[in-house]
Computed example of a mutant assay.
Amino acid sequence: MAILSTPLQYLSSIPPVTRAFTAATICVSSLYFWIQWTGDTIYVPYLTLVPGSSLFYPWTFATSALVEVSFIELIVTLLFVPPSLRYFERLWGAIETIKFIVVCVTIPNIIAFAFNWIEYVATTNADLFLYGMQYHGQMALITGILVAYTQVIPEHQVQVLGVFKARVKRLPMAYLTFSTIMTFIGFQCPYIVIQFGWLAAWVYLRFYKKNTSDTVGGIETYGDRSETFALIYWFPPLVHRPISLLANTVHSIATRFHLIPNSASADIESGGYSLTPGGARAEAERRRALALKALDQRLASSSAGSPSLNGSSQSQPQSQPSRPPPAAVTPRPDERKASPGTSEVDLADSPSSSDERR
């Protein structure tokens, strides 16, 4: 009983949403493996998302994420997704975790479904774009989790096998770059959902996620409007201006049609609130990162201006005429010393000393 108590205690410590989602992934993936092993079918359209058949199986827009078509993919998913969901479920709660999973799974699948149909209309190649691809797995959810980690602990450094080191905020774009390369070389399915998952997760966390732990004056707030989580900071500075113009235009249109929920009366970017999932610890880490950035900028500017200051300080004494120091007058032996209670008088400037010299 002592041997079995440890696994049972570990399973009981896992939050319910994480436990149920992990169990569903194992069960549905095992069912897919059994169907592939016993049958001759290439695709299973009632489990995976096939663009030409998903209209008849609409539940696959959500359940296709529970299917991993290879044992390696299943192992990688189980190593990364359940521990991450466990962390965020304790941070956000069960309801917000379920919303996050649904958003990161269904919206990328819907976008991929529409994108395949657009490709079919443009090329009339139904065998490839409608029935030649099946979207599956949790790649989009993994991207969303990386985006959530970037929001909560952006400056945290991860290390894999003592060789690969990177900060958390660099991982989503690295995964996105990998998706872009795989898509361009011909592996559109399923790697393109990584890009859609990144966009869906950022929009949800930026504008729609309800902040359950922190409130501003008792008002419910949504999203993370901090400047460090803005869209432009995901890209190199070279493209900040066009992305900023596009993002501001889309944001103004969405605000005009009330597509974005109202948050606190003052936005953080105009000096208002600063809500970060994780409470004070995550907010302190974000403030620390901003402070370090400001300190680096100050040190860079001071080091750039120090040579000119040194040059001006060295040239100033040369411009002024040098004045010889006043000559010290040696007192005669017969002069009595000043008592400790009297003040000392400079002999060079006293009238009596000048009369004596005359």
Rank of each mutant, 00 (worst) to 15 (best):
S29G: 14
S29P: 09
S30W: 10
W34S: 15
W34D: 12
W34F: 15
I35T: 08
W37E: 12
G39R: 15
G39S: 15
D40E: 12
I42N: 15
I42A: 13
V44C: 10
P45F: 10
Y46E: 14
T48Q: 11
T48W: 00
L49K: 05
S53Q: 12
S53E: 07
S53G: 06
S53K: 13
S54Y: 02
L55P: 01
F56D: 14
F56N: 14
Y57P: 00
P58M: 14
W59I: 12
T60E: 07
A62G: 12
T63L: 06
S64I: 13
A65E: 06
A65G: 14
L66Y: 07
L66I: 07
L66M: 15
V67P: 00
E68N: 07
L74K: 05
I75F: 08
T77V: 04
L78S: 03
L78Q: 01
L79W: 05
F80N: 04
F80R: 01
V81A: 04
P83T: 14
S84N: 10
L85R: 06
L85P: 02
R86L: 02
R86H: 11
Y87G: 01
Y87T: 09
F88T: 15
E89S: 06
E89M: 07
E89W: 03
E89Q: 13
R90G: 15
R90A: 08
L91C: 10
L91H: 13
W92Q: 09
W92V: 06
W92Y: 11
W92P: 01
G93P: 01
A94N: 05
I95W: 09
E96H: 03
E96A: 14
F100V: 05
I101F: 08
I101C: 10
V103K: 00
V103I: 12
C104M: 10
V105G: 00
V105K: 00
V105A: 01
T106A: 03
P108T: 08
N109R: 13
I110Q: 03
I110N: 00
I111N: 05
F113W: 15
F113I: 08
F113G: 09
A114W: 03
F115I: 04
N116C: 14
N116R: 06
E119Q: 11
Y120K: 08
V121T: 09
A122I: 06
A122Y: 05
A122N: 09
A126S: 15
L130Q: 06
L130M: 12
G132Q: 11
Q134S: 14
Y135H: 02
Y135K: 01
H136G: 03
H136V: 09
H136W: 01
H136D: 09
Q138W: 00
M139R: 02
M139Q: 07
A140K: 01
I142F: 03
T143C: 12
G144E: 02
G144V: 08
G144N: 04
L146G: 06
V147R: 01
A148I: 03
V152F: 07
I153V: 13
P154Q: 14
